[in-house]
Amino acid sequence: MLETGGKFTTDAYSQAWTEGEFWKASRNTVIVTFFVVTISLFLGTLGAYALSRSTRNYAFWILIAALIFRAMPHITLVSGYLFPFFQLQIWGILPTTIVVLVAINQPFTLWLLYSFFKTVPKELDESALIDGCSYFQAFRHIIMPVMWPGVITAGLFSLMLAYNDFTVTALLLNQENHTMVPKIQSYLGTNQHEGNLMWAVSAVVSATAPLFMLVMFFQRQVISGLTAGAVKG
């Protein structure tokens, strides 16, 4: 299948990006990833802050429920989405996929940010409350500024989920709106002639390179994120 020892050429790259419309797929990936990360972080920080500052029993049960939601295989959720989405005619477009990925991502983001918020001392926001701040003001002006490491970590994990996802993007997006990973798979499906397989190879390299760079840059945050929840548990 693979021809090696041939002459050096970058044809596969230029063809995949132009003829194979990989530029479109990478644009879609950028859109999906950007919105998934921003919305996840916005919802996640609010929810996790509330969970970390609540002393009631229900906060504990919500975290357990989130753990159960975390265990659901994505494909089982997708089989629940398809039919309603067809009926509502919101299947195939990017916003639907973004919302779905945000929701799927919430349980993990909540757990991660929860353990980060727990490390911020309660006295900090309590003193702000005594000074007359509302909970939201305390959250916005006192807690968030010291939470950046946690937010960056959670953002990286949301990014990896949105960027790497195959199950949701392959089934909830139409051909036109495919992101990079389902696009690579579609090159494989049509490998009657050799050109398309080489497209897949060059697409694989193109998709992996930015991910490597990013994680190399943020290595410390990835590790601290993985460890934050576990060590205390």
């Binding site: 802050y49 509330a50 989130a66 945000v102």
Partner: peptide
């Protein structure tokens, strides 16, 4: 505080 994330999880994981 919890409404947005709770709603997202109920609508797109629970339902």
């Amino acid at each position: 505080f919890f409404l947005p994330t709770g709603l997202a999880m109920i609508l797109f994981i629970g339902l």
